[in-house]
């Protein structure tokens, strides 16, 4: 079964002779309960792919092709309809949790605002749902945490809070853009484990954007490798990492420190 199907997705910036392709015929699919990792260097278009699914393409760009989610076509979808999906069915977390949470609003307020907007439930119901989500992502003292502010948490806990905030509306798709890049390596493992569990327990389709093959090797089910806006290779995790077909994938993996570990 397929939850999200990206088919021939292209993105251009600018018009006429100055136009440049940022994405070129990108195609892959995400099934529920799986983590699809998109790997690539800076400028490979991996982040743009994630943003296109969220309908958050930058000004001055134009996308063509198809993104089908749950029998709905997302390319060309109106802003109103997209607002109904974003945060509710499609959720996203970012690299820097401190920058993605509002510093002046309490955690509870930030987690319940969009929940109440999408579901129309009461304030107290929303708070208890938020507390459940925080408990699920293992933030210590979930009820107390609702009253606190972002600066009172460490980076790892903030990322857990960001994940809780993303899943509180019970989305079907979670897009995680470099979710552990800003975290310490000892904290990273915990967040990775959390993502894996959520994906399995909630039957989430996860799109994991990262430049870190260590992260992909740990939790991805499928890997899509991008270069200059083009998908150069896609396949199951183990095969892609241990026996990459494309020279570019091979060069990426060989450039990693301690790559002899796997041989």
């Amino acid at each position: 079964m397929t939850l999200l199907e990206i088919e021939g997705l292209s993105m251009t910036a600018g018009t006429g002779s100055a136009a440049r392709r940022l994405l070129d015929e990108v195609s892959f699919a995400i099934s529920p309960g799986t983590i699809t990792g998109v790997a690539g260097a800076s400028g490979s278009g991996k982040t743009m792919t994630g943003l296109s699914v969220m309908g958050l393409v930058p000004d001055g760009t134009h996308i063509t092709g198809s993104i089908r989610f749950d029998d709905r076509e997302l390319v060309g979808l109106g802003n109103r309809e997209y607002n109904g999906l974003r945060g509710a069915k499609l959720a996203m977390i970012f690299q820097d949790p401190a920058a993605s949470l509002h510093p002046m609003l309490s955690i509870g307020r930030q987690m319940t605002d969009h929940l109440r907007f999408h579901t129309g439930i009461s304030r107290s119901q929303a708070r208890s749902r938020a507390a459940e989500a925080l408990e699920r992502t293992r933030v210590p003292d979930p009820v107390g945490a609702l009253k606190k502010y972002p600066h009172q948490f460490s980076g790892g806990q903030l990322q857990r809070i960001a994940v809780a905030s993303a899943i509180v509306c019970e989305p079907r798709i979670l897009i995680a853009d470099e979710p552990t890049t800003a975290l310490d390596v000892t904290v990273q493992a915990g967040v990775l484990r959390l993502l894996r569990e959520l994906c399995d327990d909630l039957d989430l389709g996860v799109l994991l954007v990262t430049h870190d093959f260590g992260v992909l090797s740990s939790i991805a089910d499928d890997i899509v490798v991008m270069q200059n806006g083009v998908v150069v290779e896609r396949g199951p995790r183990e095969a892609t990492i241990t026996a990459p077909q494309h020279a570019y994938t091979r060069s990426l993996i060989e450039s990693l420190p301690g790559s002899e570990v796997l041989r």
Binding site: A13, A18, R20, S42, G43, T47, M48, D59, T61
Partner: peptide, 11 residues
């Protein structure tokens, strides 16, 4: 190339 996919660097 680093900025190739950036809106800010749009031509």
């Amino acid at each position: 190339a680093d900025g190739a996919a950036l809106p800010g660097n749009a031509p």
